Computed example of a mutant assay.
Amino acid sequence: MTPAEVEAALRDACLAELRALKPGNVHVHAPGQEALLRDFAHSAEVSAAALCAGPGGVGARALRAVEATRRSVGHNTNLGIVLLAAPLAEAALDPGGGPLRERLRRVLARLDRTDAALAFRAIVLAAPAGLGAAPEHDVRDEPSVTLLEAMRAAASRDRNAAQYASGFADVFGLGVPRLRGLPDPWAATGAFLGFLAAGPDSHVLRKHGAATAEAVRRRASALDAAIQAEGGDPRVREAELRRFDRLLRRAHLNPGTCADLTVASLFADRLLKGDTASVSHSGVFLL
């Protein structure tokens, strides 16, 4: 794939995720989010272009995308997405050939301290909510390890970091399969709910603690189990999904990491298919 095709696939994945009903997260079905949705849509445009253009390298791609987002909207809308998309884009543009997951393994294996330093700068610049001091490899310090080693150290407390450590096992093993056989945007809803049911959301965990994160997971797991028992189409439980959405919003509980993983799954699915004809190049996003 060309850089332009990868950029279009990433932009399309970001916009498709915004159209999906994702309890507690940003989406077009929730009232009063028009301004935030515009920021997320604009971030998708500028960050996809910055991430896929210019010199390669996972850390360099991530930092360019965060800088473009900060210049455009002035706050963090997509750090988790960027950190997951950068290695996937690097793999898609790898000239070495082979299946996407094989190229991704090569990309992850060659991550170095320069990638870590640039990714750390991106994280500090984005200033995500709930960012505290890490027990080791704090992003405010000069890295003493590679980006892969830093992500492995954080994997137990951050599901996005765990993707680096596992070769994006959750994205390819849970997210992508959930996207097959369902129409957009309900396929993305199914992937999001699957991630939320599979484990505590890292964003909720950081901001609200383990007990709250586990309570959200259990509620999602029960709903997901009911949907899967009825054939796996989230539309059969749309009313319950909307009630769950309202409940999480009232409690200010946003499963943002599961949304990041959903975008990564949408992006990976588009890269796997190589179906650039289905990717929107218009950049038009209708609220």
Rank of each mutant, 00 (worst) to 15 (best):
L51H: 00
D138P: 01
E136C: 15
T69S: 13
A117W: 07
V66G: 05
A86P: 02
D112M: 07
A122L: 08
A116Q: 11
A53Y: 06
R110L: 12
S72L: 05
C52R: 00
L88N: 06
G80F: 11
T77I: 11
V66C: 13
G54T: 03
A122H: 08
L84H: 06
A122R: 05
A91K: 04
A119T: 14
L93A: 09
I123R: 03
A122E: 04
R106T: 02
L104K: 01
R110M: 06
R70Y: 08
A109D: 13
G132S: 15
L104M: 03
D138E: 01
L51V: 02
P87I: 15
R140C: 07
P99I: 11
D94W: 05
G54V: 03
I81H: 10
T114G: 10
V66H: 10
E90N: 02
R64Q: 05
A65P: 07
A65K: 12
I123Q: 00
L131H: 08
T77R: 05
T69N: 06
D141L: 15
T77P: 04
A91L: 04
D141I: 09
P87N: 15
G80Q: 05
L84E: 11
A109T: 02
T69C: 08
I123M: 12
E90Y: 03
P55H: 04
D138H: 06
A127I: 05
L100A: 06
G57H: 12
N76C: 10
P128L: 08
S72R: 10
R101Q: 15
G80S: 11
P87H: 12
T77W: 09
R71W: 06
T114W: 03
A62G: 03
L118W: 00
A62V: 10
A86G: 04
C52S: 04
V82L: 12
E67M: 05
H75V: 12
G97F: 11
A50V: 02
A129P: 01
A60E: 14
V66D: 09
T69W: 01
T77Y: 08
L51F: 06
A85W: 14
D138A: 09
H137D: 11
R71K: 13
A85P: 05
A122M: 04
R71F: 00
A109C: 03
N78I: 04
L84C: 15
T114Q: 09
L111A: 09
R70E: 13
G130T: 15
